[in-house]
C-alpha cells in the first residue's frame, strides 16, 4: 500500500554543504555509474553523442548566483536529488503501490516491477527528484544507494551513497536524522540546515547547509595597482603621452 508509514525508526538522508560544494559533477557521474548497473532498470541515455543528448539522472548539479543587498555576488553550486521526505507526496499518489517509503529507514523507493510509468509521482514531487526512464518506461529516483549502505560485501568505508563516497570536497554527508547526535543532525544544527520549499508541506529529510558569509576585504583588491609609478623608458613615455 502507498500509505506512508506513521513512523520510521531511522531517517536516513544527506546533509549537503553548499559552502564546500564546488560543482565538479563528480557526484553526478558516480551516481549514474553506480545506479546504472545494480538496482533496477539502467539509467538510459537517448542520443548521447548527438546534437540533443538526453538521459536519466538521479542527481543534478545546478548553479546559482546570489546577490546580497551588500557585498559581492556569490556563485553557488547546488546538487539536487531526492530529499526522502517524511510526508512524501510521490508515494501517496501512486496508483499501483510501486512507490513506497520504508518504515525501517525512511528511504523512498520504487518497485519497478509494479510501476506503470504514469508519471504522476514525478508531477507530485516539488524537487524534480524523479525522472521517467525513456527506455524502460519506469520511474527512476535516488535510492540513497540502498544497495551500498547495507552491503557487507563492500569495505565499510564504501557503505555510503556513491555521491557521498565520490565527493572530493566532502560536501555531502550521509547519516540518520532521527538520531540527534548523528553527524548529519549535528551539522544541520550547527550550520542552520535548510529544508527546501517548506511551502509544499513535504517535510524533507535532507538538509542543505547554507554557504558561510564571505570575508570582506579591507580595501578594494586592485586599488594598489593604480598607484604604480612608471620609471625609466616607460616613465618617459608616460610623461610624453601626458599620462601624468
Amino acid at each position: 500500500m502507498t500509505c506512508l508509514p506513521a513512523h520510521t525508526d531511522k531517517k536516513l538522508g544527506l546533509a549537503i554543504d553548499l559552502d564546500t560544494c564546488v560543482g565538479c559533477q563528480a557526484c553526478v557521474s558516480a551516481c549514474k555509474g553506480w545506479n546504472d548497473q545494480g538496482y533496477g532498470a539502467s539509467l538510459s541515455d537517448q542520443n548521447p553523442y548527438g546534437a540533443n543528448p538526453s538521459g536519466t539522472f538521479l542527481n543534478r548539479v545546478h548553479s546559482y548566483q546570489v546577490a546580497p543587498d551588500e557585498g559581492a555576488v556569490q556563485t553557488i553550486a547546488f546538487p539536487r536529488s531526492c530529499l526522502h521526505c517524511d510526508d512524501a507526496p510521490c508515494v501517496t499518489v501512486c496508483p499501483t503501490g510501486a512507490s513506497y517509503k520504508r518504515a525501517e529507514d525512511g528511504i523512498v523507493l520504487v518497485n519497478e516491477d509494479a510501476c506503470i510509468g504514469c508519471g504522476l509521482c514525478a508531477w507530485a514531487c516539488p524537487y524534480g527528484a524523479r525522472e521517467l526512464d525513456a527506455a524502460a518506461g519506469v520511474m527512476k529516483k535516488c535510492t540513497l544507494c540502498v544497495d551500498r549502505i547495507y552491503n557487507e560485501n563492500l569495505p565499510e568505508v564504501d557503505r555510503v551513497p556513491a555521491c557521498v563516497r565520490s565527493c572530493p570536497t566532502g560536501a555531502r554527508h550521509f547519516g540518520d536524522f532521527a538520531d540527534p547526535e548523528s553527524n548529519v543532525s549535528r551539522l544541520s544544527r550547527e550550520r542552520g540546515g535548510v529544508a527546501l520549499m517548506p511551502e509544499m508541506g513535504t517535510a524533507p529529510t535532507n538538509r542543505y547547509l547554507p554557504p558561510r558569509r564571505k570575508d570582506t576585504l579591507a580595501a578594494p583588491a586592485l586599488a594598489p595597482l593604480g598607484d604604480f609609478m612608471a620609471t625609466g623608458l616607460a616613465g618617459w613615455l608616460d610623461r610624453i603621452l601626458g599620462g601624468r
Binding site: 545546478h62 546559482y64 546570489v66 546577490a67 547546488f78 535548510v194 520549499m197 542543505y208
Partner: peptide, 8 residues
C-alpha cells in the same frame, strides 16, 4: 526552492 533566498 534553493533555500538561498535568505542571503539575497
Amino acid at each position: 526552492a534553493t533555500g538561498l533566498g535568505a542571503i539575497g
